[in-house]
Amino acid sequence: MASQGTKRSYEQMETDGERQNATEIRASVGKMIGGIGRFYIQMCTELKLSDYEGRLIQNSLTIERMVLSAFDERRNKYLEEHPSAGKDPKKTGGPIYRRVNGKWMRELILYDKEEIRRIWRQANNGDDATAGLTHMMIWHSNLNDATYQRTRALVRTGMDPRMCSLMQGSTLPRRSGAAGAAVKGVGTMVMELVRMIKRGINDRNFWRGENGRKTRIAYERMCNILKGKFQTAAQKAMMDQVRESRNPGNAEFEDLTFLARSALILRGSVAHKSCLPACVYGPAVASGYDFEREGYSLVGIDPFRLLQNSQVYSLIRPNENPAHKSQLVWMACHSAAFEDLRVLSFIKGTKVLPRGKLSTRGVQIASNENMETMESSTLELRSRYWAIRTRSGGNTNQQRASAGQISIQPTFSVQRNLPFDRTTIMAAFNGNTEGRTSDMRTEIIRMMESARPEDVSFQGRGVFELSDEKAASPIVPSFDMSNEGSYFFGDNAEEYDN
């Protein structure tokens, strides 16, 4: 783990906690998980779902989305002020799938948001429990990260689609708070800032007046979040320049895209947490497990152990491969979309394939898809080993990566060399080191050039047997250095459309 220093740990961010010791953190995270579980059980009762239907990941996603929508204050306010045809701002819903006479049927349900809020609060001892809501947002974000390569979004903001390893959390809503900021990748933060800068260039009043003052505060806050992700002084200094700019424009845009590229080699610290679907927490609570009393951590053995003992089902389209669908969801559960496939294969105990080789589309089923041909199958979400999630980018030494994705962002704290394609990355730096950030740029390029592919990161860190909950005997895996390590390699994943 990167030293926490003055930073709060993510469990504290996750639970809005002030400084807590490890036991208190485990208890408050457990409380959050228990609340999600209780809410899910109650919703299944309301909807009269069978046990099997309640364990269907598509039903879980609909129920999670309903509660997130019920608590989305800004959108609710907007919907009330701008009524649109056929949208009731006070209601929320989605597809629920039921097994009827041996076939899967889709039923569109509609609930009062007020009623959903009441059920959620009741499951969370009367609190709004925003930490639990954020947790579900991060699960949705991790699922998107594993399912889609955001080529269009990258290109629109002047970045290269091969930089997708920097895009963790790119679909997280803005209201996801400190826990959300911690899991956002460098590219995601750059993209958010670039969008602001572009608006400022096109709209003279963007930075002016009372609204402009708020915009400015948001801009500086985002700059500080991004600065905190960088691990070298030169990158941090460049972020200070971007933040202090009187009138952010093209120079800042250039600096930010430069920094994003540099992060492929001088990786930023991005938190990883295993956020599971509500249909995993519900049955665990129903079986009598007391998360608050037992304590829970999002970055240790607990999620692995929970998945070892969970039964989750998914709808499967006619030509999809259930094992591939399982891999997709497994990666999402562990926030591992940008991790090295060699490491993932070792931990999972079966070969993890790149996205383009998977015969599976996303987990969600569109409303126009034919239910007649839908089957369902068990998702295999178990693992051979477990490993500690990392909050750091690993040290800054790398190795060759593949054509589709030119770097990785480690999820697990496991000893290995970190793949990246130096030639491709360095070719993108057209040696432009003039301007006010020239000395920093020169320094950053120097550090990137001296990074050695064969150097090892996370020295001495290994994986653990599932029986080793105290992480007492690390097993340090050895990897084939020459092997392909990137998930979005030469990829044809669908595009994420909101």
Rank of each mutant, 00 (worst) to 15 (best):
I57Q: 03
V363F: 09
C44G: 13
R317E: 02
V186K: 05
V29N: 05
T232C: 02
D468C: 07
S245G: 14
S345Y: 07
D203I: 06
K184G: 06
I365D: 03
V329R: 00
G404M: 05
A260S: 15
R317F: 02
G5A: 08
S9I: 09
G200N: 06
G180E: 02
L166A: 13
E220L: 11
T373M: 14
D455L: 15
W330E: 01
A182E: 09
R317T: 09
N247L: 15
Q12V: 04
T62Q: 05
G93S: 06
N309R: 15
E11K: 12
G180I: 08
L172W: 05
R342H: 14
R74L: 06
T378L: 00
I408D: 00
Q12S: 15
P161Y: 01
Y281F: 07
L259M: 10
K198D: 07
I197V: 14
V363E: 01
S377K: 01
L259D: 07
V100L: 15
T62E: 03
G86M: 02
A471P: 07
I197P: 02
F230M: 08
G30E: 12
Y281G: 00
G356H: 12
A251H: 03
L341R: 10
E494Y: 04
R98F: 09
S60K: 04
G485I: 07
A427T: 07
S383C: 12
K90C: 01
A271L: 00
S482H: 10
R416D: 04
G132N: 03
S359N: 14
I365E: 03
V242G: 01
R221Q: 08
R221G: 11
D145P: 00
N59W: 06
T92L: 02
Y52F: 14
S314C: 13
D112P: 02
K229W: 05
R99Y: 09
R452W: 04
Q398C: 12
S274C: 09
M13L: 05
G158F: 09
R361T: 08
R204I: 02
A451T: 15
T257C: 13
G485D: 04
K236Q: 07
G282F: 15
A218R: 01
S392M: 06
M163V: 14
G462E: 13
T171S: 15
Q42V: 08
K470P: 00
